[in-house]
Amino acid sequence: MNALEERLAKCFSLALPSLDEQAIRRASTSGVAAWDSLTTVNLVSLVEEEFGLAVAAEDVAVFVSFERVLELVRRQCGPPGAA
């Protein structure tokens, strides 16, 4: 896990405290019952705070899995290790 992924995993662990590190990497709205709309709102704010981003309204739609959010963060923060 690189630094960017670790920072994102920290956001997920705060929003979804029942998940361990492995489960966080696989987390998705369809696979995690505890992931509700409030979790999504918290995740968006935590990601904005952690990475200094402003998540656009249309990008909230990617907050359905760890992988998709990671892609968004990579896209917004530049290549791996740049953030």
Binding site: C11, L14, A15, N42, L46
Partner: peptide, 12 residues
């Protein structure tokens, strides 16, 4: 206190 810290403190 940022949101991450507040959530962690809230858990305690």
């Amino acid at each position: 206190m940022n949101l991450a810290q507040a959530i962690a403190l809230g858990r305690q």
